[in-house]
Design a protein around this nucleic acid. Sequence first.
DNA 1: TTGTAGGCGTTATCAT
DNA 2: ATGATAACGCCTACAA
Lengths: 326, 326
Amino acid sequence: MISIKDIAKASGVSTATVSLALNHSDLISEQTRERVCRIADEMGYLPNPYARRLVKQRSDMLGLIVPDIRNVYYAALVHHVNHAVRAAGYGMIIAMSENNPAYEEKIVEEMIASRVDGLLLSPLNSVGHTLSYLEHFPLPLAFVSSRYEDCPYPAVIPDYQNGMAEITRMALEKGRKRILFMTGPKGEYSLEERKQGFLCAAGENGMVVHCREVSYADATEATEQLLAKANGSLFFDAILCVNDTMAAGVENVLLRHGISIPETVAVGGYDDVLFAETTAVPLTTVKQDIKMIAETAVSLLLKRIAGNKIPQITTVPVTLIHRDSL
Amino acid sequence: MISIKDIAKASGVSTATVSLALNHSDLISEQTRERVCRIADEMGYLPNPYARRLVKQRSDMLGLIVPDIRNVYYAALVHHVNHAVRAAGYGMIIAMSENNPAYEEKIVEEMIASRVDGLLLSPLNSVGHTLSYLEHFPLPLAFVSSRYEDCPYPAVIPDYQNGMAEITRMALEKGRKRILFMTGPKGEYSLEERKQGFLCAAGENGMVVHCREVSYADATEATEQLLAKANGSLFFDAILCVNDTMAAGVENVLLRHGISIPETVAVGGYDDVLFAETTAVPLTTVKQDIKMIAETAVSLLLKRIAGNKIPQITTVPVTLIHRDSL
DNA sequence: TTGTAGGCGTTATCAT
DNA sequence: ATGATAACGCCTACAA
C-alpha cells in the first residue's frame, strides 16, 4: 500500500510537506498543495489510520455498546448514533455485549484499548451490576436508554415514567377501571421506571403482572393464564405492556379467544417499534424518539469529552401514539 | 496509558523481553514470563492495537457492511457474523451503507484504509451497480445474502429459488390454483431469484405483483388495490410474499375485509424473521438460516484469506416453516 | 535466555 | 514555504 513516502518521492518534496499538504495546512503554498493532493489521488493513496492514531494519541473514534442488536430498539439506536457520530466527524466502533456481564466488561476493555475518545453504553438488563473496573481509566462514558444504579456516569434516558403515566391516563380517560400492567422481571432500571409511572397514574385501578422475560412468548403465556383464571368473567378491561412485542402477543391471544380490541379489552404497547402499526389491531403505544435519544447522547458525550460538565440524568420526552387498540 | 516500556522498567528487563513474554513466546524462560505478565496485569497494561497493527501490517480484523441495521434480517446477520468472527480470533468492524451506493463505496474505502484482512459485503438493493473501484485493491471480499451481478467475487446466498419454489409447491398441494407472488422492484438479485423459483413452481397458476418497495406500507396498499379490482369476486386464492413484513401487511388487510386466512386466501411469507409468529394469523414462511449463512460466509472468507480457492456461489439451504396462514 | 536497534506510517518541532 | 528528524508503541531480526 502506498504511503506518504511514495507520494513524496513522486512529487519531489519531503514527507513533511506531503503531510501538511494533505492536511490542508496553510503553511503550504497553494500550488504545491494542489499538486501533492492530485498526485496522492492518482496514486490511490489512503492514509493509514493506525499510524495517525499512534502519533496523535487519540483515535477520533467513539464507541457504542448495546446488549443485542437483534432487538429492534437497539438496532434503531445504533443506526441513529452512527449518523450523529459521523456527522460530528468521528468514527464509530460498534459492539454487542450479548446480555452477558462478563462479555460487557471485556468489550469495555477493548474500547479502552482502542483508545476511543468516548463511550456510549446501553447497559444490559441485569441488576446489581456495576462498572467498578472502570475506575482506573478515566474514559468519558455515558449511559444510553438505561443505566446501572450506583454508577457515577451521566445517562440519557427516555422519560419512561411519564410515558407510562400518559398511556395509563389515556386508558383511564377512556373509562378503563381495571388496568393490568404487564412487565418483565423486577429490578431492572427501565422497567422499574415504567412501573412507577403506571402505579402513580393508575392508583386504585392498577394491577401488575410480572413475566419472566419481556418477550412475545412470555406475554402470550401470561395472557392465556389470565384468561383461564378469569374463566369467563374478565377482571380487567385493559392490558398495558412494557413493550410492543408483548402487546402483539397479548393482542393475538385476545383475538383468538374472540375478545374484541379495544371494546372489551384495550391494549397498550411501548416503544413504537417498526411493527407497532403492523399488529392485528394497530397498537396504541408510547413512542420513544430514538433519534433524539441518540443525538442527545452523542452531543452530551462530545461535551463531556470537551471537558464540560453534563447533567447526571438527561430525560428525553416521549410521545403517545394513538392508534386503535386503546 | 502504560506501555511495554513502563513494564520493562518495572520488571527490570528490556522491552523486547516484555513483548516476547506477553506474546507467550517460548524463547523466554518460564519464570520471567510469569513475572512480566503478572506485573503487566498489576499495572493494568492494555496493548495498543494501533502500534501492533502498524508494525505487523495487518489488523486481524474482518469487516462487515450491511445496508440497514434496522432491518431485522441484517441485524441477525450482524449478530451471527460477529459471533463467528470472534470465535475465529478476529476482531470485527461493522458498518452500514444506508442503502446508498456512494456511501457504500466510501465505507468500503474506509475498510481498505483500516487494512481489514477481509470484507463481507451484504450489498444494497440497487441494480446496475458494481465495485469496479475495488480493482486496484486486492482485498479478500465475499458477498453475503445477495450479490452484484458482473462482480467477480464469491458469494454466500440462501437458496432463494428453492425456498420460494417449495412454499409455492405447498400452496399448490393445498389446492390453490390462482397464486399471487408479491414482490418488490425488478432487477434486484435476491428478488429475481425468488421470482424465478415461484414462476417455475407455479407455472400456469402464477401471477406476479410488483410493488415499489418491499415494505409493509406498499404491501397493504397493493392488497387494497387488488381487493378493489376484484370487486367481490376474488381472482386469487393465495398471496405469497417476498418477505414477512409484506405478508403481515397482506394478512391485516385481508382480515379487515373479513376475508379468512387461510380458508379463503392463503398467505405466505419469507425470512421467518422475529415477528413471523407474532402476526395475526401465524405465518407460514421460508426460514433463512441466518446463523448458517453467517458461519458459512465467515469460514469461506477465512479460507479465501488463507489463499485457498473458494466457489463463486455457495448456496445455503432453506427450510419451510409451516404455521397457519397457508 | 535476553538486550539492542531499526522500522511500521504519521505528525510535529525545529531548522533552513 | 519546505525539509530533516524525532517521536508514538510495538515487533523482530540479530547480537550478545
